[in-house]
Design a protein around this nucleic acid. Structure first.
Length: 137
RNA sequence: CCAGAUGGUCGGAUGGCCGCUGCUGUAUUCAUACAGGAGAGGAAAGUCCGGGCACCACGGAAGAACGGUGCCGGUUAAUGGCCGGCGAAGGUGACUUCAGGGAAAGUGCCACAGAAAGCAAACCGCCUGUUUUAUAACAGGUAAGGGUGAAAGGGUGCGGUAAGAGCGCACCGCUCCGCUGGUAACAGCGGGGGCAGGGUAAACCCCACCGGGUGCAAAAUCAAAUAGGAACGUCAGUCUUCGCAAGAAGACAGCCCUUCUUCCGGGGUGUCGUUCGGGUAGAUUGCAGGAGGGUGCUGGUAACAGCAUCCCUAGAUGAAUGGUCAUCCCUCUGUUGCGCCUUACGGUAAUUCAGAGGACAGAACCCGGCUUACAGACCAUCUGGAUAA
RNA sequence: GCGGGUGUGGUUCAAUGGCAGAACGAGAGCUUCCCAAGCUUUAGACGAGGGUUCGAUUCCCUUCACCCGCU
């Protein structure tokens, strides 16, 4: 995409507040793959240039060791991928599923890129003039 | 060599690329670069005990209540931990396990079965006597045997007796006294008593000892916004008092409440600004040098203590300490099959190749324990058995 | 991280240490032309492991799961 090549994202900051997670989940824009779920919403900063990411690994993933490992792999995937393919001015939330632990790392990168591509195409569709409230997600 | 017992150590290794969080140094745009060096455990877990530390409460001591602990001695900051000993139970043994005070202070309970479940009593029995041809009935004695039960008022043997019975005796058990050893728990020996005194205290209880409460989201410092508080200034309708004035006090008016409108009554209340104090979000400290660890010596059976010397070893906060790739190591499975056994089929299996797997588990103020989870590997001491010399 | 609490049939709850029960639900039968309702009847549980006791759902210890409170 042309727009992405213009994006020069110098830093990826981390979401930490429960309020932000609830706001992004209420945005109802998400895409599910086998190993993860990606949610996205427009950021609330006035600057509009930030790119923020939140990570979630619930107790369903496993005990503390497994949750921590899932978050570390998520961070590594996001660090390698989102700098090129993410859109700035948006907040992302990545949720780990159980397959996060057993899948290979290449598969995780493919899953994340696929989710981002589908979400970006949905947003392109939005700019075409449709009402965003009637988005069938 | 096989099977065990006890105690301890480790719990994947190396390298490439890309990253994360503190610390130190340098540079500057003062929060960023670069360099150096550091960065999870034996259980970090469960939160079951004990302390440090912080705040709150409290004049001291004792008692009551509540909770806990419970053989004896030692160790420790302290403990319900640990070490040593005693007793009981289990094991051929090394060794292991034990909430292991008091049932002769009192209360409660012991279902069903059984005659009887607690000051003993007597169902079937046994024995004697009377009546009766006999069977049997009645009266008395007795508790050995049977039966019930988890448990039936010491056990075994001999004597004794009409039958029996601690009725008598021997041994064992119980209990009391004395002596000896031991700090003690307790053990040994001797003598007396003559069988009373069932079990249950993880039932109430009694005795001895211990315990103030809350917990780093404790607490301290700095300190936005909003609301409320205090001080000062400013403005505010009328009247009265004080005062030359500035101003202060009081009353009425105004505004709000008293369900709604009016009147009466009652209650409350100034506007704005600045500052202060308390204090929330947030930030910093608390917070990593400590009941610290390694080695050696000394004392002690040991837990542990003392001395000397060396070392500094995580500090995150939606929570770092990694991600990925390659090689090696270990285990398992499959393929090939040197060699060995076998006539052969076949069996075992060095090696090669391929695949899968490599446990339990992540610090959150710190420390001492306990408990629970854990693939495997190694070391030391000891026990039982087999073989050889 | 810290502090509390609860585990009993499929569900909601009882039960002095002595045969584990009630209601609803499930199955079968009776009744009815059929269904519902009603009546009769059956099956089904003490979270797990140890200990004390003659005997444990109950008492004690360990463990597992779940719930609540503290920002």
């Amino acid at each position: 995409m042309i727009q992405q090549s213009e994006n020069k994202i110098r830093k990826i900051s981390v979401l930490s507040r429960r309020k932000d997670f609830l706001r992004i989940a209420a945005g109802r824009k998400k895409w599910v793959s086998n190993s993860m779920i990606v949610q996205v919403a427009k950021t609330t900063d006035t600057d509009g240039s930030a790119l923020r990411v939140g990570y979630t690994a619930s107790k369903r993933v496993g005990n503390a060791v497994k949750r921590s490992r899932a978050k570390r792999r998520l961070r590594e995937v996001v660090r390698r991928t989102l700098r090129d393919k993410g859109q700035r001015g948006h907040d992302y939330v990545v949720i780990a599923r159980t397959a996060m632990l057993s899948a290979s790392f290449d598969q995780l990168i493919r899953d994340f890129s696929w989710c981002l591509r589908r979400l970006n195409s949905v947003k392109e569709h939005n700019r075409g003039g449709k009402n965003p409230d009637q988005e069938p997600m």
